[in-house]
Design a protein around this nucleic acid. Structure first.
Lengths: 173, 173
DNA sequence: TTGATTGCAAAGCATTTGCATGCTA
DNA sequence: TAGCATGCAAATGCTTTGCAATCAA
């Protein structure tokens, strides 16, 4: 992951403060901290994940606040909710991030983000065909990644101690 | 919805019985009833929906059995799980039904099934590009359907008493 | 000062599980 | 008869809500 540029970081903070102000909400140390940590962490995070990261800096912050702040970040356009099939809601960075879809390895939980302008085009055409004005869409593909295919073929076990980030139970979750 | 042909109906029952037999399970009156009602009901059903339909015929059948039987139907390839963003799991007929994707109206809950060979193609290419062997994929698009757009433009309320089948809260659910 | 925010505990909600009883094969 | 199936209640897991205390503006 590329280190986030300082300007982008500041820009995102600004967006958050603006959103808070516009909505008549209040800036608090908890929100600052949660935003800060979210911005510094690339990768897909659950509320739980973020909660533990926040705990390290300030053990007084509660679960609820993290949940609520993630909703706020989503409303502000800084975060986006995604689900990969393990029943949890993940949050990814949204600001200045191209729209993309996800490939999920059901063996090791690896997530690959991809983008296809052709697919997007066809989706828009499809929506048009049925008279829909689209607001959102989600394309997820589950399968076995190259590494895991290799492992299976060679009758070798998963890397010792490997804990899949995402344990896919149901592919529709 | 076209009325299901008798042969198809019988074929699906046969598949279920076969699945049960192969898995060393047992045929019961509850499973028969649930299968029967599921097969006779087109549309997307939640476990809860199916439960109430079953109740009308046999009030002694419990929630749990419906849940478990739907899982069974899914394993047998007769049903497929889908989620539309209201936090519930819906089941649709899967046997002899072309793979398809979903357009969901976030205003009235209308679900449109569509299929695009081009999109499927591009998906496969994308998976190949990243070395994935695909097992499953899910494309959902949310938006406002033609009827609801019209209603909004005309400042007219939703049809009185209209209860959306699907009340979309979060688009990722 | 006022009303938004916080953290806790409790509630919600869909789904799953433990277990004693009932029933197929 | 063996052991799968059932239905109830309880548990689960994630998320949301009620509420009294706290704190930003």
């Amino acid at each position: 992951m590329v280190k986030k540029k300082r300007e982008e970081f500041l820009k995102e903070k600004e967006i958050f403060l603006e959103h808070i102000q516009k909505a008549g909400l209040r800036r608090t140390s908890q929100r600052d901290l949660i935003l800060e940590i979210f911005l510094r962490t690339e990768d897909h995070l659950t509320s739980e994940d973020l909660y533990w990261l926040v705990q390290k800096k300030d053990p007084s912050v509660g679960h609820t606040t993290v949940y609520r702040t993630l909703k706020l970040l989503t409303e502000a356009g800084l975060a986006r909710e995604v689900r990969f099939g393990d029943g949890k809601t993940y949050y990814e960075h949204h600001y200045n991030h191209e729209h993309h879809d996800h490939l999920i390895c059901t063996e090791c939980g690896k997530i690959i983000e991809f983008f296809s302008a052709e697919i997007e085009d066809l989706q828009d055409k499809m929506a048009e065909k049925y008279g829909f004005r689209l607001t959102n869409h989600s394309l997820r593909m589950w399968g076995v990644c190259g590494d895991c295919q290799k492992r299976t073929n060679e009758y070798i076990e998963a890397p010792s101690g490997a804990q899949p980030r995402v344990r896919v139970k149901s592919v529709v979750n």
